[in-house]
């Protein structure tokens, strides 16, 4: 796999809604090589504070452009949101091991994949849905309120069927997206399904448990604070059946049954 230190030019950096932002930058090398589930390490400015890069999931690529969506939650992401078109950002990528998915050609296999996104977790799953050619995965989106729902249109334009859960019930199912998943699995025959998920850790833990109870394979994309992002510092480890694994290098995507959290 090709990974490089790059200077990339920001094409656009706009607020989507709430605290969610959409960043597009020019980088043919990353656009060519990126796979769904991989991420980039972005230096948000050239100063020493904040010191570390920020790991951001790749949301999509088109031509020589790379798209990221991120939530402004602290100083680093705040500074990133201030970097307008024309600014050059220091980026390393693509990094990590992405999702494993097959190219589905058999019609009977259609709908065999379920994508579960919590909040910002939609970021890599849109990219994944795009690359699952021939398959139209069922997408479950979980959000705080209807205002927080991200990427519904993008999934729709990919031909995905969408179900929504909101914490306050302002759209779709009222409650957790994992309860929606549980309901779905109890009513629909999903024996062929693989569940792909990205979102907050409690959600991912629940997805792993539900998948296991239903004898389904799951692939979960984890998020961690990272110092390096390329496997050197051993800072971002997660506990697995075979000991600690680096989220940045051995992941960020792990099989649900491997994780002991």
């Amino acid at each position: 796999m090709e990974t490089a230190l790059l200077k990339v030019r920001v094409i656009s950096n706009k607020k989507l809604k709430c605290n969610y932002w959409h960043l597009e930058f020019e980088c043919g090398m990353i656009a060519r090589n990126a796979r769904p589930g991989q991420f980039v390490e972005v230096k948000v400015n050239h100063l020493m504070d904040p010191l570390l890069r920020r790991p951001l999931s790749i949301h999509g690529v088109s031509g020589t452009r790379v798209r990221i969506i991120y939530e402004v939650i602290g100083k680093g992401t705040q500074i990133l949101s201030e970097q307008g078109p024309g600014v050059f950002l220091d980026v390393i990528g693509p990094l990590g091991k992405g999702f494993e998915y097959g190219q589905i050609t058999n019609k009977a296999d259609k709908q065999k994949n379920i994508l579960v996104a919590g909040g910002m977790g939609v970021a890599p799953l849109v990219f994944l849905a795009q690359r699952m050619k021939g398959s139209r995965p069922l997408v479950l989106i979980g959000a705080k309120t209807k205002e927080h729902i991200l990427c519904e249109k993008e999934f729709k334009s990919l031909g995905c069927k969408i179900k929504i859960a909101t914490d306050d019930g302002s759209r779709g199912f009222k409650g957790r997206v994992t309860d929606l998943l549980k309901d779905l699995l109890s009513t629909v025959n999903c024996q062929l399904s693989t569940i792909y998920a990205c979102g907050p850790q409690p959600m991912l833990k629940a997805v792993a448990r539900i998948s296991c109870e239903n004898n389904l394979a799951s692939q979960l994309s984890l998020e961690r604070h990272m110092a390096c992002g390329f496997g050197a510092c051993l800072g971002c480890v997660v506990s697995t059946k075979s000991g600690y694994k680096r989220v940045c290098k051995d992941g960020p995507v792990f099989a649900g049954e491997e994780l002991t959290w």
Partner: peptide, 15 residues
Amino acid sequence: PPRTCETPSGMLNSI
């Protein structure tokens, strides 16, 4: 874990 955290112009680690 967590084994690292960012601090002003620095970081803490406990690998």
